[in-house]
């Protein structure tokens, strides 16, 4: 396929419009209110931290949801992984790097275990994940009681306070997903299973291993989210009765935006830009001093609006070009 000049321009437009447009809108609104969008370096940090956690959550959500596996347990994995990581680190007085590594490994193990249950129980992923969520939340409570607190050890809470760290997380996560999904056997098999489950299984591709792998990757992502969240305040609060499922809801908008941008670029890169959009909205609300109720309301409306656009693009396009649809 040859790419002409106009088509490159079109692609760039498709890639940039949403994130750049969102940032621009908030810049303008902030300017009107006499506020700078990025006033201090702290705003930049908030922004990148959001991009990082939202990107990771989006990768974790989409890797399974794209294959028709709905996973409620993401938030509980983040929570439990960070509890395991911090508890072990504190009990044995390990260095901060150990906490990162243990949390990440815990995330992978918890994700893989969730995948293993899904594979073994042969239930719809949605249902398995309900049970897993309850289980992981309860383990958090059993291990840590009310949670874990290490805010008094500043060396343990440095990670999420560095902008370079956040950028590094984003870059590594993106590079990881990009390479795994586009240049490894796992990724090829993933794509085949995603779109042609039966054909792929009949051909002899090991679906079970691939699925567990997906859950493990999602677990790694959520482990990282747990680590960032834990090091943000130095406290992890236990949560019961599905209190943890809210964590995954941030990922829907970026996921769909990612799907849209994915038409012009690589899918995962699109998701990062989706996360950028989400983070911009979030920071915008913080800068404008609007309450989080208003924010969740607006985010929900934006999500619905964007989906309406995505799912009715052709109808809308027909409407604008004046083409009529349907018989007399």
């Amino acid at each position: 396929m040859k790419t002409g000049k106009s088509s490159i321009a079109k692609r760039l437009l498709g890639i940039c419009t949403i994130p750049a447009g969102t940032i621009l809108i908030f810049y303008i609104i902030c300017a009107f209110r006499g506020i700078a969008f990025f006033e201090t370096s702290n705003h930049v940090l908030i922004f990148f931290r959001s991009v990082a956690t939202v990107t990771l959550t989006t990768f974790a959500l989409s890797i399974n949801l794209d294959s028709g596996r709905f996973d409620f347990s993401l938030g509980s994995i983040a929570l439990l992984a960070s509890v395991v990581g911090s508890t072990i680190t504190l009990n044995y007085g390990l260095p901060p790097a150990a906490m990162l590594v243990i949390t990440l490994i815990a995330g992978i193990v918890l994700g893989a275990f969730s995948g293993l249950l899904y594979v073994l129980l042969k239930l719809p992923a949605l249902i398995t994940s309900l049970g897993v969520t309850l289980l992981y939340e309860s383990l958090v409570s059993i291990i840590s009681g009310s949670g874990v607190s290490f805010g008094t050890q500043p060396e343990l809470t440095q990670f999420s306070k560095g902008i370079p760290n956040m950028i590094l997380v984003i870059v590594i996560a993106l590079a990881f997903m990009y390479i795994v999904m586009n240049y490894t056997k796992f990724g090829f098999h993933y794509a085949a299973l995603k779109d042609g489950q039966k054909v792929a299984v009949d051909t002899g591709i090991k679906e079970v291993g691939n699925a567990i792998g997906c859950y493990a990757i999602a677990g790694a992502m959520m482990g990282m989210v747990g680590y960032i969240n834990a090091t943000l305040t130095g406290t992890i609060q236990a949560s019961l009765d599905f209190g943890s499922i809210g964590a995954m809801f941030v990922a829907f908008l970026p996921m769909f935006i990612g799907g849209f941008i994915g038409r012009f670029s690589e899918n995962h890169f699109g998701m990062v830009l989706g996360a950028v959009t989400y983070a911009a909205i979030q920071l915008g609300f913080v800068r404008l001093g609007l309450s989080s109720e208003v924010q969740s309301l607006v985010s929900a409306l934006v999500l619905v609006g964007f989906l309406i656009y995505l799912n009715n693009e052709h109808t809308l396009a027909a409407l604008f070009t004046g083409k009529k649809k349907g018989g007399a």
Partner: peptide, 19 residues
């Protein structure tokens, strides 16, 4: 039945399971 997968490239279909 249909033995190719729509969402992946033609080449990937050809080398499915044999990558």
């Amino acid at each position: 039945e249909r033995g190719t997968i729509g969402g992946v490239s033609i080449a990937e279909n050809i080398f499915l399971g044999n990558i």
